[in-house]
């Protein structure tokens, strides 16, 4: 009985705190995306003639983001019936956009006019509890800033 209560408590905590954190994160992502809109990001560039620029530099943005207890529970449940796991989709979306933003903001501070040949990578950061644990992922975005 006590175990059940603990699980419900954790689920409620994960749901409430997780939702608040996610909403705040999305709000911050949207504001920063608008602010950095003027600097375009391209994932092409490797096979094109080199662009004209006075300076070029590598920029890397990275973030480690974790799902919450509630989402992990939902995902575990979804695995039984298969199909889309909605709980994790927003997590990966947030991670990618955050990593891209960090790369962009870094490039803008340096004076970049655009960022070309951008690559995105995702890696699962295993936790010490093995597969049963809560998913955390690392997303990195890197590209060449030009000015």
């Amino acid at each position: 009985m006590l175990e059940l209560l603990v699980i419900f408590g954790l689920l409620a905590l994960g749901y409430v705190a997780g939702s608040i954190i996610e909403q705040n994160h999305y709000a911050s992502i949207k504001v920063r995306e608008r602010r950095t809109q003027s600097v375009p990001v391209y994932n092409i560039g490797a096979k094109y003639p080199l662009p004209e620029a006075k300076g070029a530099k590598l920029f890397v943005g990275s973030v480690v983001i974790s799902s919450d207890y509630y989402k992990a529970f939902l995902a575990q449940f979804s695995k039984l019936i298969g199909g889309q796991i909605f709980a994790y989709e927003s997590l990966l979306d947030r991670g990618r956009r955050e990593a891209l933003l960090r790369m962009k903001e870094d490039a803008i501070r340096w004076g970049a006019k655009k960022v070309v040949n951008v690559r995105l990578e995702t890696a699962t950061i295993g936790n010490s509890h093995g597969d049963a644990g809560i998913l955390s992922i690392e997303v990195i975005a890197y590209g060449t800033g030009l000015r």
């Binding site: 705190a17 997780g18 974790s66 919450d68 955390s136 990195i140």
Partner: peptide, 25 residues
């Protein structure tokens, strides 16, 4: 890991790991 373990419950960014991996990179 312990700090991240707690953070895992509520989700969001794990700053400790982000820094760790940035240093490593």
């Amino acid at each position: 890991d312990i700090a991240a373990g707690f953070k895992n419950l509520v989700g969001g960014e794990l700053h400790g790991y982000t820094e760790l991996l940035q240093e490593a990179r």
